[in-house]
Every structure is written in structure tokens, then in C-alpha cells.
């Protein structure tokens, strides 16, 4: 394979800050390979992140990059896309970032169907702050703020995105980076709001509290809970309990927000509207 990574990273920032075995780097690799395969110019890509380990991703890539506030990657990205629709806008978020503090922004970005690709690195925990449970921590698992087991239900983020109005929704894992790259490529190519959720690991925070202390043990666990979408559909409710379906859940063509706004401008300039 040609070494595509070096073309897109800010080498002076490496080695990165992530812990040994952290999936963030694997997702970054998949993202870079997908962008490279589309032949996009670095100047035309804007990548926005929020807060958390995963959000450091924007510091490492040589695009127009922005590391914003916690949960807010999507509204910042929305401002960028709306103002300059020519830019290819990507928002990278963690699960706490996207599904908790940024949950409202997530569903509304999907509702608008604005042409942004959201990549969510779901390691099911708040890693940077020391392993507190997130809205994606499975029920019954442990976190530093769930020392007796998590009683919350976790979101199905992909189902949430699909029902909120996105155009493309897929889920993969760091165990299967080929699939992740393929899904991200499709998401990036999609005109509309596209979501790729990548199940990732956190050996230090999640692993430490859930008897999965090494990167390999975490990887094995992810492998064991992953089932292809088709297989998952045939499982009983009981069998589905500890599994996560992988694959593409939605791929539709619906009008995109910045395109629709152009129509608004046309109507306004022709003197239309309710005046």
C-alpha cells in the first residue's frame, strides 16, 4: 500500500497523545484513507471536533481544522458549511461529546440534513476525564461514576441518526478498519447528513473497570459483540442484548439543507414569500 497517511498529517505533532492501543488512531487512519481515495484537496476539507480524547484528532491532520467546545462540533461545522458550501465538512466526535452534551446538536444536524459527515468514535466511556459512564456505556457495565454498574440505558446512536433525518448511517468498529474506511468513504460522498459510528476501545478507562485491561482484550471483546446487520436481524431479543449490529442502516437521497437555502435566496430575490 502506498503510504497515504503522511500526506495528510501534521507530522510535527506526532507521536500523538493517545494511550497505547487507543482506537482513535485507527479511526483517524480509516478517515485519512477514505479522504485520500476520494482525491480531495486538503484545502477543501474542514474538520471540526469537540472535546475529549477523540477531539484531539483535528490537531493532527493538515486540513482546515477546528477543535471547539464540548459537544458543539456540529453547530460550528454547520456555520462553516452554510457559509461556504464548497468546503467538505467533517465533524469528529466521541460518544459523550456527541450523544450527551452534543445530543441536541446531533439530532438537529440530522434533521436539517446538512451536508456534513459525522464520524463518532464510540468507546462507550468518557476517557479523558477518567472513565465516567457515557450515554453509550452498556447497561450493567462499570464506570468510575458507576462503581456498582451502570443503570442507564444506552442510546442506539445509528438508529437515532436515522430517525432524526440523516441521509446515510452506518456502523463499524476498529476491529474492521477496511469496513470503516469503506463506510466513511460512502458517507463523505453522500450529499446530506451522513453518520458513521465506529465502535472503539479504551483499554485505560473502559478496560480497566470492565476486566478488559489490554488493547488486545478490548479488541477481542469488540469482535465478540459485533454481528453483521443481517445476522443481527435474525437474533432473538435475548440474543441481541449484548450484541451490536454492524453495517449500513440507511442510504437515501433527500434534499440537502444548503441546496434548499439556495432556493430560499431565489424566492427572496424574486420577491416571493409571505410579504
Amino acid at each position: 500500500m502506498k503510504n497515504v497517511i503522511e500526506k495528510y498529517i501534521r507530522k510535527e505533532m506526532f507521536p500523538h497523545i493517545w494511550c497505547p492501543g487507543c482506537g482513535n488512531g485507527i479511526v483517524l487512519g480509516a478517515l485519512i484513507r477514505a479522504i485520500d481515495s476520494l482525491g480531495w484537496e486538503k484545502d477543501e476539507v474542514a474538520m471540526v471536533s469537540g472535546i475529549g480524547c477523540s477531539s484531539r484528532i483535528t490537531g493532527y491532520v493538515d486540513f482546515n481544522t477546528m477543535n471547539t467546545t464540548h459537544g458543539r462540533a456540529l453547530p460550528f461545522a454547520t456555520g462553516i458549511k452554510m457559509s461556504n458550501p464548497k468546503l467538505k465538512v467533517i465533524a469528529v466526535m466521541g460518544d459523550g461529546d456527541c450523544a450527551a452534551i452534543g445530543g441536541n446538536h446531533f439530532i438537529h444536524a440530522a434533521r436539517r440534513n446538512i451536508d456534513i459527515t459525522a464520524v463518532i468514535i464510540n468507546n462507550m466511556i468518557y476517557g479523558m476525564t477518567g472513565g465516567q459512564y457515557s450515554p453509550m456505556t452498556p447497561t450493567g457495565k462499570f464506570g468510575s461514576t458507576a462503581p456498582y454498574g451502570n443503570i442507564d440505558q444506552n442510546f442506539d446512536l445509528s438508529a437515532l441518526a436515522a430517525s432524526a433525518g440523516a441521509s446515510y448511517v452506518a456502523r463499524s468498529s476498529i476491529y474492521n478498519p477496511n469496513q470503516g474506511t469503506r463506510f466513511i468513504k460512502k458517507a463523505l460522498s453522500k450529499k446530506g447528513f451522513s453518520v458513521v459510528e465506529i465502535i472503539s476501545d479504551c483499554p485505560i478507562s473502559y478496560g480497566r473497570m470492565n476486566k478488559l485491561r489490554t488493547p488486545v482484550k478490548m479488541m477481542e471483546w469488540i469482535k465478540s459483540i459485533s454481528v453483521p446487520k443481517k445476522t443481527w436481524e435474525k437474533l432473538s431479543v435475548e440474543e441481541k442484548k449484548d450484541k451490536i449490529p454492524m453495517g449500513e442502516f440507511l442510504d437515501i437521497c433527500i434534499p440537502e439543507y444548503t441546496d434548499k437555502y439556495k432556493e430560499v435566496c431565489a424566492i427572496a430575490q424574486e420577491g416571493g414569500g409571505n410579504e
Binding site: M1, K2, N3, I5, G29, P177, K185
Partner: peptide
């Protein structure tokens, strides 16, 4: 190479550069 979280290992085909089939 694909699973390395640190971009620390690379494999090259010395005869021709393999292409990743998307």
C-alpha cells in the same frame, strides 16, 4: 498497518505498490 493506532508500522510491496480496493 490498518489497525495500528499510531501509524507506526507500514507494509510495502517492493515490486509494485498495492492499491487498496475501496
Amino acid at each position: 498497518e490498518l489497525r495500528c493506532p499510531d501509524f507506526a508500522i507500514r507494509v510495502e510491496n517492493r515490486k509494485k505498490v498495492a492499491n487498496y480496493n475501496m
